[in-house]
Write a protein that binds this DNA or RNA. Structure first.
Length: 262
DNA sequence: ATTATTGTTGGTAG
DNA sequence: TCTACCAACAATAA
């Protein structure tokens, strides 16, 4: 379930579970997940290293282990659990810390996740835009970036990971609802006031989602205001919510109180 | 049986 | 170089 809040939740979990621990053993059979690195090189590289730090930028995680960076993307269905043999186990870490052994397993039913083990930087990571939670949102910079998008809708634009890192389909839907801006609005048509509203909308939805994850380990069923609620009354103005497609992604919005800017 | 799914990427075209 | 568009990846759950 990974967008920015879920990945941040995962990061905090991994800090508790893995930071300072030695990777006594690591096993996987999933060459696809590791590509382009071979399974053998992955195992050989990580075995015996200590997890020194776990950081996040957008939807990417970076585990620093000895000389290595392990970049992790959870794809659509990636998740870390502390169970011995969960369903869809793809990578298993056997850890030792202070003489205590533990096991952390990466599970991923659809296998769209990525593990990149490297001593270099990662181009995708370097190209990520500012992280709304970690870096905050520079409204001026965001406005300038959006202004260059002549055709793209504002929703597609804010989901571009080089514009803002970590905004996915749900967070974009919720933030635009909060900002009262129609997701079909052209990105380039927005003015400073709109961008400020989107920035605070993003802060609002990210904090809400994080709070929900902190309370319920796996998150509430659907803790969101309008995502996945087509046909039900808008919580703000009671107009029936509509569902459309933008950039190939399902989009829920309220035709009553979200204003189209172009 | 059919449909939808919280994401990226690589190719093409302009 | 930058923007835009789309098929592909794969496995579930409703």
């Amino acid at each position: 379930m990974p967008e920015l809040p879920e990945v941040e939740h995962t990061r905090r979990k991994l800090v508790r579970w893995m930071k300072g621990a030695k990777i006594a053993q690591v096993s996987t059979e999933d060459a696809r997940l590791l590509r382009p690195i071979a399974v053998s090189a992955f195992v050989k590289g990580l075995t015996g290293t200590t997890v020194d730090a776990i950081e996040r930028k957008g939807k990417w995680l970076r585990l620093a282990a000895g000389p290595w960076s392990l970049f992790v993307h959870l794809g659509m269905t990636g998740w870390f659990v502390r169970e011995d043999e969960p369903r869809f186990a793809r990578v298993t870490f056997d850890l030792v810390k202070g003489g205590k052994r533990s096991r952390v397993v990466y599970t991923d039913s659809r296998r769209w996740g990525r593990f990149v083990l490297t001593k270099e930087s990662l181009a995708t990571w370097d190209k990520l835009g500012p992280d709304p939670l970690a870096d905050g949102i520079d409204a001026k910079l965001l406005l300038a970036k959006l202004a260059r998008r002549k055709k793209a809708s504002v929703k597609v634009a804010i989901m571009d990971q080089t514009v803002l890192a970590g905004v996915g389909n749900i967070q974009a839907i919720e933030a635009l609802w909060r900002a009262r801006i129609d997701p079909r609005s052209r990105a380039g048509a927005l003015v400073a006031k709109d961008v400020n509203a989107i920035a605070s909308g993003l802060r609002w939805t990210i904090e809400r989602t994080l709070k929900d994850l902190a309370v319920n380990e796996e998150g509430t069923d659907n803790p969101f205001k309008i995502y996945g609620r087509k046909g039900t009354p808008c919580p703000r103005c009671k107009t029936a919510l509509e569902r459309i497609e933008l950039g190939g992604r399902t989009t829920t919005f309220c035709p009553g109180c979200q204003v189209r800017k172009d």
